[in-house]
Design a binder for these strands. Sequence first.
RNA 1: GAGGGUAUAGCUCAGCUGGUAGAGCACCUGCUUGACGUGCAGGGGGUCAUAGGUUCGAGUCCUAUUAUCCUCACCA
Length: 859
Amino acid sequence: MKKELAKLYEPKQVEDKIYSYWLKGNYFHAEVNPSKKPYTIVIPPPNITGQLHMGHALDNTLQDILIRYKRMSGYETLWLPGTDHASIATEAKIVAEMRKEGVTKDMTGREGFLKRAWAWREKYGSTIINQLKKLGSSCDWERERFTLDEGCSKAVREVFVRYYEKGLIYRGERIINWCPRCLTAISNAEVIYEEQAGHFWHLRYPLTDGSGYLELATTRPETLLGDTAVAVNPKDERYKKYVGKTVTLPLVGREIPVVADPYVDTEFGTGVVKITPAHDPNDFEVGLRHNLPVINVMTDDAKITDDYPKYAGMDRFEARKAIVADLEAGGFLVETEDYSHNVGTCERCGTTVEPRVSLQWFVKMADLAKPAIEAVRSGKIKFVPERFEKNYFNWMEDIRDWCISRQLWWGHRIPAFYCDDCGETVVTKEPSAVCPKCGKTMRQDPDTLGWPDETPELKYFYPTSTLVTGWDIITFWVSRMIVAGMEHMHERPFETVLIHGLMRDPNGLKMSKSLGNGVDPLEVIDKYGADALRFMVASGTSPGNDMRYSDDKVKACRNFANKLWNATRFIMMNLPDDFAIPEKLPENLALEDKWVVSKLNTLAKEVNENLEKFELGVAAQKVYDFIWDVYCDWYIELTKPRINAGGESAENAQTVLVWAMAGILKLLHPFMPFITEEIWQALDGTGRPLMLESFPVYDEKLAFPEEEEAFEKIIEAIRAIRNRRAEMNVPPSRKAELFIETADSDTYEKGVMFFERLASASEVIINHGAVPEGSLFIVTPSARLFIPMDELIDREKELARLNKEKAAVEKDIGIIGAKLSNEGFVAKAPEKVVEAERAKLASAREKLAKIEESLAALS
RNA sequence: GAGGGUAUAGCUCAGCUGGUAGAGCACCUGCUUGACGUGCAGGGGGUCAUAGGUUCGAGUCCUAUUAUCCUCACCA
């Protein structure tokens, strides 16, 4: 089917149209199909609050490349899409929206709030999905999931109950990170540590028996209110005598013990530490070991509790000032030192988190981690690149219990019920519970599960093939998926974890909202097309390494798309109206046809190998090079004189052009799906989609190594001629005769028309016998070439140049010869390598001989 | 404190199981060759961070050093 194509490729006129075409054909949909092997990827679900950013573009492009490749390679491929309800982030946005209207959560109540939240999700939840579609993602949208949908909720309840029944989930008072602004517990992963300037207040705690003071230092003096001991190291000779005594807590007057605990570092500070079990994780541990009371001195919003009337209601930082002033007044403050230390802040709102004892739900991780570690150690799950396994082990071998409850409403509700009468607790999958002891209806835990990281629907498509994600979430997400997978399915959740790097800004900085250096992928798509963005993201990178975004790189990829487009314009220009993509190659292939066919065949082989090894960047580069150099710069140019000449050769050239283009389109399709599909549709009238065609594989019948080698000689000669003419500043318009002296006249005969067209030869004379007077001398390993250019020839210069070339070849011969006469090399190097060296030496010697002949002829 | 990444052409980066260094951009010189100037041809430019080691042979493997970035833990 022939039609006119525009001179420039216009992605905007193509992409949406093609995407609808795919959707209409339902080509992304996967079904259980016993006759095919499955290949599954589960998308790392983007937050519903999210906008597509470069990280998504990278992550999803890689996934789509793999999915499209596998789909074309005969697998039943499922790319399972979904979105994450993202408890904290989403709830924060909704609360913010409500605040603008003057509404609070207290006013709406739980039900009212959730109604709003779902409405919010209806409104914004599809934004990111539509953006993924712009990228060309071939997800099975029919199976789209939401982490808060009924199926997921059910699975979460199931998981929770199973863990609980096995004793892996417990509820208890522990130190957690509390955000006084979001008013919820957050996990360690949600805390960002920042270096902040602060003070180190040196305090004096008087011994109760009046025998003196213990001096210690703190950065958070307000927590003094909750001190229940002072600790020293048991080995510390300085303080041994105080252990067992008590000190009187300044300002509070409480009598607290001096305990000995190895946690205390004798080198740091004075070697004395105040212990505040309710507000410091280490102190909490010390408290457990010494049976110390736990005194919480702050409210949810980080104000001092009513137990300390003097400071009650003060914000923690206000209280800090007040307490320091009072300590100073009371003579307890020894010194105030400037001190810079790390302060934990809430990932969402930036508020300083308050470590705080709180009643929360936890998952015991130590036992769960074991099979998950084993799964990777045994190689059942592989990380690509491998080095990320270390990160994983690092994390998993030192894993802490995981706080999973959040004081939020938007999320999976904890399936635990409490009896207000007798205090009984029941954990059940059922939506309500009756107290087994007193028969009363029980009250469900108001908290939600902070489980955005767990996507239990995975188990229905188990085990999946590849997980594609950035290294930044190996610990939080990947590790938990492996844990859950091993625990519930006793099977790995995926075979391979493909780790990619971060997308950075052009200066190598992390893209972030606060810096305002983010690049919007949708704008890039708008400007250069999705294919260009995809190709930029896929090429020139290696797994696990970060990459910088640069407009220039995308532009180069856009140019590449345009190049392909114009190659298509060329082949279509001469195509008859009723042309279709040929199934087979013609019988009488010319030398250059076999050359290009054979090279394409090799390319197919390599691309498959690279993709299997997840070397997407290498594969992309090879396809790019083939299309631009081999197909466009050489093969198309080679067909021009044939097409001009007409006849069978012209027809064959056309057929091979289209046939090779079809192969190119298939190989490139996973990387640039839109333009390849568009071109395919333009070339092929049958209406079958390119995305369902078979991915090319190596075919022995298409390998022509001898013809390849033979034609390379012609290319080599053409290059040498062009080179020489450029050096001599001979314009291409200036044609001249070309005399060729070669032992391989058969091959060179086949190149005549190419020397004329591509090397400015007016006439080609092979093995004339005599060297024409006043010629440029050009030498390749397989031929001597002479171009009569009387007025341009300076005999002396020619001699000098030939001698220079001779020296270079001799140097080569010297190096290769030395290598080959090295016994170690010949004995130990692989046969193939030795052979290659011998061939190189032979070729260099031939060239040398030809140079010498030429020198003789000149003088 | 523990672990890890990176260091290759002016810039951004490739370089698979070790076999005499590549791309894109930039630069220089030519080109209205009827697909494409988002193009064509030709060219310059690298002691592959440093010092050792293994090897017939190292950008590629090992050790140390320097620079730089990151992750985790966190000291009161």
